[in-house]
């Protein structure tokens, strides 16, 4: 055999063995593919079909029922309002907490774990804790009574502002630590040199925050923002524990249609709305906060 023939032979052998090697790989990932199809794809398709089911095949009957419901408008409004108010406050708080930890104060480990505790608390439990505070005979009213104020019905449907504030505070407590943990890890990932360079070149703390840390934190903030927006659209247990149906939110409505009204079709339609707005928000964030610094050289 000549040298070229040998090489060609080798190449052919390689190709053959590569295609044979593919099948065990497929075999190995197939359990997870099957699991994903069973637990994710199939329920999703079933949910979409359920939402668009009508007596004569497919139709918009359930969508019309959902939009026509008196609670739908308030639910959309409340959910959006919660996101618009909650997220900025939450991000400012989380960034401030992360920056404080980044200054390496004494006992920073303790602060970090204390601030991260809410992540470990189930959201229904968190809702019940805050219910114990805000309810008519709760801790807040008894504290206020000692200075001669109140009692105030914080969670009554006649007080939508205080209802909203109570949910806002509880959600802030429960979910800010997630953002903080992401920002802390993001800060730790920024090489010290950038801050030192900015410092040597005369930048004050604020200049460094604005021109060095925040821009370099952008990838972390983007992740946190997408995650938190999606989770905020799904706010349910805390609001349910605090106000029941008095302060409707989108996922709360889904729950009401599914359990109280025994209408899984409209519940599916509502779930689809939540999924759609979450996806739209994530897409928007990815577009708006796109990293333009790594484009190809012109």
């Amino acid at each position: 055999m000549t040298r070229t023939e040998l090489v060609r032979e080798g190449a052919r052998g390689g190709r053959a063995s590569r295609s044979r090697r593919l099948s065990p790989a497929l075999l190995l990932i197939s359990p997870s593919i099957i699991l994903m199809l069973l637990l994710f794809a199939w329920p999703m398709v079933a949910g979409i079909l359920q939402a668009f089911q009508s007596p004569d095949g497919l139709g918009l009957d359930h969508i019309e029922r959902m939009v026509g419901d008196g609670q739908f408008g308030p639910a959309v409004r409340n959910t959006l309002l919660l996101i618009v108010v909650l997220l900025p406050v939450q991000f400012v708080l989380a960034i401030v907490m992360a920056l404080l930890l980044h200054q390496r104060p004494k006992g920073q480990g303790l602060y970090f774990y204390l601030w991260a505790v809410p992540i470990a608390v189930s959201d229904l439990a968190a809702g019940l804790v805050w219910l114990a505070i805000f309810t008519d005979n709760g801790y807040l009213n008894s504290a206020l009574s000692t200075i001669g104020v109140g009692p105030v019905s914080w969670l009554s449907y006649t007080n939508p502002t205080s209802q909203f504030t109570a949910i806002l505070v509880a959600e802030l407590w429960r979910a800010t630590s997630l953002v903080m943990v992401i920002v802390v890890s993001g800060l730790q990932g920024i090489p010290k040199d950038y801050d030192e360079a900015a410092n040597v070149f005369g930048a004050t703390y604020w200049t460094r925050l604005r021109h060095v840390w925040l821009p370099l934190l952008k990838p972390s903030l983007q992740v946190a923002l997408i995650l938190r927006t999606i989770l905020a659209f799904q706010t349910f247990a805390v609001a349910q524990a605090l106000t029941g149906q008095d302060f409707p939110l989108l996922v709360g409505e889904t729950y009401r249609f599914y359990t109280a009204l025994q209408n899984p079709n409209v519940a599916s339609a509502l779930a689809l709305v939540v999924m759609f707005v979450s996806m739209a928000a994530a897409f928007l964030y990815l577009r708006v906060l796109r990293d333009g610094t790594k484009g190809a050289a012109r």
Binding site: P191, D193, Y194, E196, A197, A198, N199, V200, F201, G202, A203, T204, H211, V212, P215, L216, K218, T293
Partner: peptide, 21 residues
Amino acid sequence: LPPNRRNLSMVFQSYAVFPHR
């Protein structure tokens, strides 16, 4: 005195050129 009040300039070994600017 903190670095930003010393009126210095510096070239770093890693360059520390800001990637986002």
